[in-house]
Computed example of a mutant assay.
Amino acid sequence: MKRKSSHTAPDKTIGRPVGSKREDTIARILDSALACFTSHGYASTKFKDIAVGANITSAAIYQYFDSKPALYIAVVDHIYQDIYPRFQQAIESSTRLKERIRNLVEAMVSLHEQSPLKSGFLSSIPLETQRHETLKEIFSHRENEMRALQARIFEDAIKNGEINPEWKVDNLVMMFFGSMSGMANYQLSVEGTSLRQAADIYLSMMELHLLR
């Protein structure tokens, strides 16, 4: 008489669903994490909330991301993979600051219209890194290609004599990208507002007072 095995069949609900690929599961986790981080903030986001949106268990997330900071950074990188080529194309399409700024604004507004969650998440990064030492430490040791790309347009403009050479590049980056992020956040929270129209007004003001 054969002895009955003491092992039980594995729970099929744990981990990725049957038939799905690893990449599909990671994509669902990242999409759910993006929604949770944007809606609830870094501190209030729990793996169990992300798991619900990704249709997996909380424990299964650890098969792909060993901590919440690692998952947060993965979301950042995932978004950058999408927007970096857009920004790069906007900058390389011209050598003049005026056209570059207009192209960048169009890229940022289009991103916001296509994916408000991504826009909202990106604008929250500076605040989250100041609130949480773990994130601040991680970002301080990362090479930031996006930041270098942002700085490049103003570095080139100063060399070409298009803007005041006494203005620091870091402050120019803060002025431009900080303003766009702030407007995007405001539009998300106030009904009836239009980021596209606000951006047009902003561009008109810049061309009057900033660009030579």
Rank of each mutant, 00 (worst) to 15 (best):
S140G: 02
C36Q: 08
A27E: 10
S204E: 15
T13F: 15
A60W: 05
K136C: 00
P165H: 03
T13P: 07
F87C: 01
F154D: 02
T38R: 04
K2C: 06
A151N: 05
I79Q: 04
M180C: 01
S179H: 12
M146Q: 00
L203C: 06
A199P: 01
K2V: 10
S67W: 15
I26S: 10
T13Q: 11
F177C: 00
A60K: 07
L104T: 03
I29Y: 08
I101W: 05
F177V: 00
E23R: 13
K4V: 14
S181R: 05
V76N: 06
Y62Q: 11
S189D: 08
H7K: 14
C36H: 13
L195S: 01
M174N: 01
R152H: 01
D200I: 09
V76P: 01
G53Q: 05
L111D: 02
T193H: 08
Y84D: 03
L97Y: 04
D156F: 03
I14N: 10
M205Y: 14
M205L: 10
A107I: 10
M175R: 00
Q130Y: 14
M174R: 02
F65L: 10
S119V: 08
S67G: 10
A157R: 01
Q130G: 05
R16L: 13
R96D: 14
P10K: 14
R86P: 00
E143N: 06
A151H: 09
G182Q: 12
R212Y: 11
R152L: 07
P85F: 07
S94P: 11
M180R: 06
M174G: 00
R152P: 00
Q130I: 12
A27Y: 09
E155T: 08
T45H: 05
S5H: 02
K48R: 12
D31P: 09
G15Y: 06
R152D: 08
T193R: 11
Q88E: 14
F139M: 07
D77I: 06
S189G: 15
R152N: 02
T38Q: 09
I56S: 05
I83Y: 04
Y62N: 09
I125T: 01
A148W: 05
D156S: 11
T25F: 14
S179G: 10
T45K: 03
L34R: 04
M175N: 04
Q81R: 15
E162K: 11
Y72C: 03
A74L: 09
L172P: 02
Q81Y: 10
M206T: 07
M1E: 08
Q63C: 10
A35Y: 13
P10G: 07
K12N: 14
N164R: 14
L34F: 04
R142S: 03
Q130H: 06
K21I: 15
R212M: 06
F65I: 08
N171H: 13
P116M: 05
A184Q: 10
E128R: 08
H209D: 14
L188E: 03
R196F: 07
S20D: 13
